[in-house]
Each structure stands twice: as structure tokens, then as C-alpha cells.
Nucleic acid binder design. Structure first.
Lengths: 222, 222
DNA sequence: TAGTGGTCTAGACCACTAA
DNA sequence: TAGTGGTCTAGACCACTAA
């Protein structure tokens, strides 16, 4: 029935911005209950096809969009799901007082201690992604005690620190000399970066650049 | 109530793979109806936190993931939403019989006509993204008649050709000489590519590489 | 402030699928 | 094949917000 409603809606010729009948009317017209229409319309709203507002009614989205869902797993799980052997190496670890670019990310106005971590994740002993991370030690003091040569910060945080907000960015960078060396590639190689910054309420947790190996692709399907 | 259920579930200490009580039991325990539990749990499943199976019950997802929703608007809308002035230039247009790399994308085994299009989209008269597209003329014969110097294929297809399946890829490339020239940058610059291939049922519609300008970032928030 | 959509109930029946 | 989750109903009440 839900699919029936959706296909009836979708096969009518509506134009961007058009107003749809209210749920109650659609229910009667289509011979089903209001709850069913509500669910069907909620799905369409989730898919970005219509916009719903109390009192305002339901309208076809004025600007059509492609809405995709991206699943970003733990690096270890991603490697293992592809049938690879996962390994991990801590490259560098250092406590520092907020550097300016980190303060900017979190809009901090007083200095705090951050743990800076550089680590390399391997798939079948080949470099897979380079993790460059800053962890807020005021929010996550337990991090001081974690042995990062054994457990990756990636994994420890996922299991121990829930977040309430996460900003994600995807962009391309040119490998600098050091990064290129890690990946056994030439400096200047184009690399996809997955950049994530998380908070719990308003307290900063971590910001991380996951620099992927040359040729890495992020995939999804709709 | 839904939020109440979710927070109660989320604040309990469950481990990956743990089985949750069935909806009926949770409903009684939490003093609400089964429908409400169903909705709350469905939300958690959509968010990738739990997995539900008929007869199998509900389990905490064994491999935690970050699930993000990406909205990819029309290029024109994206530029205008940022307050920019949009413009567009068709660079090249040519009909060709399926080249091998396109046949591979769509798993085609017989030759067909495709329309190859190169176009540049501008924001405030600065190059914004370069569109490199192949349209299947067997599935979309109307495309032969469209004046692509006026309407971009991007926009025409969104408004005229619904798709049933869409594969998305994100990756980084180094600008070749020609691409670099379009963006007034140096060859080898790292560029983010949004790559989309769409079908209607099993018939190919189009495959497009949207090559973004240097420094472009794809953003989302959870 | 009246008109929408959002949430919830209590119950029926169905559709999968693990055991 | 029995045990879960998924969908649907008919109705109540609530929460926004456009006009």
C-alpha cells in the first residue's frame, strides 16, 4: 500500500513547488488510512522528494536533489570486509597545546591539550590509509592512558566515545613528500581525504584526516 | 516516547552483536505500544546502529559504522544557494558508438550510440565544475533534439528522466593539461570527482564525471 | 489561531527466515 | 514451521507554523 501510494504520487505529473493534497484527502482518495499515507509521505520526505510542513502542507521539493547514504566503517572492518589482512602502525604521538588550525575547527577560545596522532593502516601489508588525528584531552582524558601502538585511536574512540555531532568533509589533496613516501608514490599524487570532526554536545572530541591511498574510491548506490 | 526508548536503549551497555529483547517485551517494559517500539527501532536500524531480522530479532550492529547522508543538488542550484551567479558553457558534443570504458560501466554487450558531452559550469564567472558525460541514446532518444548550449544535460536529465538505480563514486584525480587549463590551475592539481552512473530498470541512462574545481569540498553533518 | 503534519495506541494480519 | 519483525487500521491528541 505504501509503495502503491508512492508510485501513484510519483507517476502523477507534479512540478517542483506543487502542493499535494493533505494526507487526509489522499487517504480517502486512495482508500487507506491516514497513518499509511503519513508513513508513505514521510518516506518521500526522507528521500528528499517532497517537503512537509505543519499547516503548510506537502510540496514537491522545489530543487530536486540526489540524496545518497554513505556508510563509513572502521578502517579495520573495511579492510577485512574486502578480504584483506589488516594491520596497523603508530607513526607518531605527541601532546600539544591547541594549534591555531585545530582551535579554528572547534571554535575554541582558550588553549587546551590535544593529542596528535599519526598512524598508518595497512591492507595485506600495503599502506591503505594514513590517519592524522587530534584528540581533545580535556574531553577525553582517558586517551592519555591508551596504548596506541596496540589499539588504533580510530577503534578506541568508536568503542568508547559516543558523539552527538559529526562534521564530514571530502576533498582531494596532492601528496606531500612525506605522505607520498608512506604510500610509495610520487609527491603530487591526488589523494581523496575523508575529514571528520566530532563533538559530544559542545565539547570537542576529535578531528581526523583519513588520507586514502592513491586510487581509493568511496562508493555508494541508490 | 520514541526518543525516550532510543535513549534508554542507547544508554544501556550493549556490545556489538548483543541481542535486544523483542519489540513486544520492550513495549511492556517501557510502558508503550508495540507500534511505538517498532518505529523507534526502525529509526535505529536506519541509522545503522542495530540490525533487525524477522524471526532473528534485533541485534546491535557487530561492526559500528558512521552513516552519513549526502545531498547532491543540481549544479545550478548549488551555485545559487551559495549566493553565486550561475552560468554554463557547452564545450563539446559528439555522437559515438559505445567506447569500451563506457560499455564496461554499463556491462553492455552490443554496440549502441552514446552522446558524449563536455561542459563547464561557472560560479560568478569562475570555472566551478567540469562535466564529462555519456548519455545512452537508445534509452534517451529525445536527447538528440535537446539544445545543449541552452539547457545543460545535467538539468534536462534530472527533469525528464527518472532513474531507478544510481551508482555514486567519489575519488581524486590529477588534473591533466586540458582540465588544468579550464580551471586556470597547474597540471597535476588534485581534484575531487563525483562520478554518477544511472539506469532505468536495466537500461543505461547516463554516466557522468563531475570534476570539481581545485579546493572543492563536499560537506555533510550528522 | 486554525489548519496541517507528527506521534501514539491497541489490535489484526502478514511476510519473512532462523532453527 | 514457529517466532520475529513489518505493515496496516481507525481513531485520539498533540505540536508546530502559515496566514
Amino acid at each position: 500500500m505504501r509503495d502503491e501510494i508512492q508510485s501513484r504520487i510519483l507517476t502523477r505529473t507534479y512540478f517542483p513547488g506543487d502542493k499535494l493534497p493533505k494526507d487526509e484527502e489522499l487517504a480517502e482518495e486512495l482508500g487507506c488510512s491516514r497513518s499509511t499515507v503519513q508513513r508513505a509521505m514521510q518516506d518521500l520526505a526522507d528521500a528528499g522528494l517532497v517537503e512537509r510542513r505543519r499547516k503548510g502542507g506537502t510540496r514537491v521539493r522545489p530543487n530536486p536533489i540526489t540524496r545518497a547514504t554513505l556508510d563509513i566503517p572502521l578502517i579495520r572492518h573495511e579492510v577485512e570486509a574486502r578480504g584483506g589482512t589488516y594491520s596497523y602502525q603508530l607513526l607518531h604521538q605527541e601532546t600539544k597545546t591547541t594549534p591555531p588550525h585545530i582551535a579554528a575547527r572547534f571554535s575554541l577560545n582558550h588553549p587546551q591539550d590535544f593529542l596528535h596522532i599519526e598512524a598508518l593502516h595497512y591492507s595485506d601489508h600495503q599502506p591503505y590509509v594514513l590517519e592524522s588525528r587530534w584528540v581533545c584531552l580535556e574531553t577525553v582524558p582517558e586517551m592519555r592512558e591508551v596504548d596506541l601502538s596496540k589499539t588504533s585511536a580510530n577503534e578506541w574512540l568508536v568503542q568508547n566515545k559516543p558523539y552527538s555531532r559529526c562534521d564530514l568533509k571530502f576533498y582531494a589533496i596532492e601528496a606531500n613528500t612525506l605522505t607520498a613516501a608512506h604510500f610509495n608514490t610520487a609527491p603530487g599524487a591526488a589523494l581523496l581525504v575523508i575529514d571528520r570532526t566530532t563533538w559530544i554536545d559542545t565539547a570537542p572530541i576529535t578531528t581526523v584526516q583519513v588520507i586514502t591511498k592513491p586510487g581509493y574510491q568511496l562508493l555508494t548506490q541508490i
